[in-house]
Structure formats: structure tokens, C-alpha cells
Amino acid sequence: MKATFSIRRGGSEGGELVDYRTEVTEGMVVLDAVHQIQAESAPDLACRWNCKAGKCGSCSAEINGKPKLMCMTRLDTIDITQPVTIEPMRAFPPIKDLATDVSWNFEVKKRIKKFKPRKPDAEDGTWRMQQSDVDRVQEFRKCIECFLCQDVCHVLRDHNKHAEFAGPRHYVYTAALEMHPLDTENRIDELKNDFGIGYCNITKCCTKVCPEHITITDNAIIPLKERVVDEHFDPLAKLVKLFRKK
């Protein structure tokens, strides 16, 4: 059986959807279709991928308008009687075809203060942590940096607040550091002032698209927002802070 794939072709200046027909077999995922098209008729079709198993987060794209990993989207879960559109992530500048310039994400991450552990607990330089204390952080550390959460977030996608807003991926990253049992750094001021966490109005779109099923909004963003509120808007805390400064 054959199916039609409408794939965005073109460079950074603009592009158009081009139709390709290719054979579909049992168990195929969207990335297989793209590879088949590359081998049959469009070897210059640009697309990122690495592991093909949902572990590296390279093949992010918008399939029929929905942000997904191409390697984890089986063709039998979408309607292939109609042309399947495959487009690059919209929240980032296009490079060519399905590849986008995601370098902004790497720049933002660099600006977040690094992990700073407390002194080791034992004489041999090691620490002690209970599994129950690291479960939450391990959830955040499942992130494969596919940036689909960034892509779907309207603050970036529709309002282009890249300069003031770090995006869900980096709130998850910050949460993993802030909730790390060993970490002693404080990143709350920057969250408010430099990374614009206030722009997030908890629509939970990021949580819905996360291929790793990280509960981004409830477990990372909301607790961070609460910490920001505690430090900046709690009158009692403000008073204490004032005295401490003196």
C-alpha cells in the first residue's frame, strides 16, 4: 500500500510542501517513510535523526501539525488515507527542509547556574541519598532535549519571547537542579528576572507533547513558580530578607 507524505522543502528563506508517494509496510514509523523517500527520490532531503528509538530527541517535527518525534510515530496511529504533512518545528528558525536552528536552547542552558553540591556526607567523598528523595529529580532527568515542549509553548511559538523566556525545557532543567538533594545553589531570582517564568500561564501544552511523559507543568513549573512567589511576593519573607541584608 502506498501513502502520500507532504514534506516541507526549502531553506531558511521559505519553503513549500512537496508530495512524495512511498510504500508503507507493517510497523513503519514516520521517520522510516522519510528515509525511504531519501533513498528513492530525494537524497538531499534534510532531516535530523540519530537513535531511532526515542532516546536522543533529534527527529522532532510537526506531523499533521502536531509536535512529535518522527521515530516514535507509527503510521498505523495516523490517517494515511490523506496526505501526511511533515513540517519542521515552528518555534525555531528553519535551516533546510525539516532541520531547524535550535542553537538558542543551548545558549539559554549555559546561562543557568551549574550544579553546586554540598560537602560530601562520608569521609570517602561520597554522598548518601534515599531513592524516594531522588525520584522526582530522576523524572526530570529523563528529558531527551527534543525541544518539542519549547515548540508547542505559545510564549515562544506565537509570541516569540525567546529573549525573555527560557521555555519549559529549561524550567525542567532548573527544577532538576533546584530539587537535587545535594544542590546548594539558588536560581530563583533569575527564574523571575531573566528567564521569565511568569509568562507561563500553565496551559500544560508542554506536558501533553512530552515524549518522555514528564509532568512538566505540575511537577516542575508550578513548584518553581511557588518558590518565586515565596521569595519575592511573600510580605513576611520580604521583611526577613530586608533585615538579613542589614
Partner: peptide, 15 residues
């Protein structure tokens, strides 16, 4: 671990 890795833990809190 000193650089932030979070390994699964034993009951007594070690790696």
C-alpha cells in the same frame, strides 16, 4: 555524582 548525576540508590543511600 559530584557533577550532578543521579544514580539509583541502595537502601543505605549509596549508588
Amino acid at each position: 555524582e559530584a557533577w550532578g548525576a543521579v544514580f539509583d540508590r541502595t537502601k543505605d543511600g549509596k549508588i
